[in-house]
Nucleic acid binder design. Structure first.
Length: 254
DNA sequence: CCAGACGTTGTT
DNA sequence: GTCTGG
DNA sequence: CCAGACGTTGTT
DNA sequence: GTCTGG
């Protein structure tokens, strides 16, 4: 499904729709021309994800200088969201269920189905947001609706069993979240590096300053599939990983 | 009635 | 400065 | 939100 | 599709 709900009545290329419908303000949902229909029809969905990024809005900082954070569900001691090798199955306890130890975020959303000229269905969704509780207000004034229990998930997604009114009751601020600061690597939305969610520390203490030394270390760690430690992450290093400039339109290619 | 919007993030 | 793509 | 584009002449 | 502004 695409992030950014495309209403079924949308005219023209769905790709031109943009991300303006990526979120649905809960305060507006019931009287919104865009969202009231999908909600009334029970088009509720759950967006399962490892985490999301948010920039801290500080009045002094320029937009590009705003600190970026990775946000996720609180995890057990020792489990690192940025290091999948710590997500292993607990074979003794969960052998039958085969559930990973990692807790994923489950965000409440609304979806719609758009049909193109060929009759192909395009599914897309919006994530519901509301004013931040103190869990997130230190970082940002809006936060997504997080579903915490299986019961809440069922109540949101099972539109046959639960009324719209009952579903609304699960939309409340999450009790607790996990988070850590990340580098500016994530500022470019075209970036696809797995390093986007690695912890970042600004302390220059023990920082490796030579780019070649950092790259060598990095290559070794990739080979061994080891995580980067905080002190080894350097913003200058990440500059090298920035994506290439895009081409213009196809007609400009020789 | 018809035309045009339908939304959010953010900012001051 | 302002708009688009992600 | 942030990053990056923002354009025309002409040619094959 | 449905609502608002003119």
């Amino acid at each position: 499904m695409l992030w950014g709900m495309i209403p079924f009545w949308h005219q023209g290329d769905f790709k031109k729709h943009g991300l303006s419908t990526n979120n649905c303000r809960l305060e507006h949902m019931m009287n919104s021309k865009l969202f009231k229909g999908p909600f009334a029809r029970g088009q509720r969905c759950v967006v399962v994800c490892e985490g999301f990024y948010e920039w801290q809005t500080t009045k002094s900082a320029k937009p590009s200088e705003r600190p970026a954070f990775y946000i996720y569900m609180p995890q057990k001691e020792g489990l690192q969201m940025h290091n999948k090798s710590t997500w292993q199955f607990d074979l003794e306890k969960d052998n039958e269920k085969m559930e990973p130890k990692v807790k994923l975020l489950k965000l409440a959303g609304l979806f719609d189905v758009w049909v193109d000229e060929k009759g192909d269905k395009i599914y897309s969704y919006s994530i519901i947001t509301f004013e931040s509780s103190k869990v997130m207000s230190w970082l940002h004034h809006r936060m997504p609706a997080v579903l915490e229990t299986d019961e809440e998930v069922a109540q949101w997604i099972d539109y046959k069993k639960y009324s719209n009114e009952e579903a609304m009751k699960v939309l409340k601020p999450v009790a607790k979240l996990g988070w850590h600061k990340v580098s500016k690597l994530v500022n470019n939305s075209r970036q696809r590096s797995k390093d986007c969610n690695k912890p970042f520390k600004e302390s220059s203490k023990g920082k490796i300053t030579s780019f070649l030394a950092i790259r060598k270390r990095k290559e070794e760690q990739i080979k061994k599939d080891l995580p980067m430690s905080d002190d080894e992450i350097d913003e200058d290093f990440f500059d090298e990983y920035k994506p290439k400039r895009r081409r213009f339109s196809d007609s400009d290619q020789e």
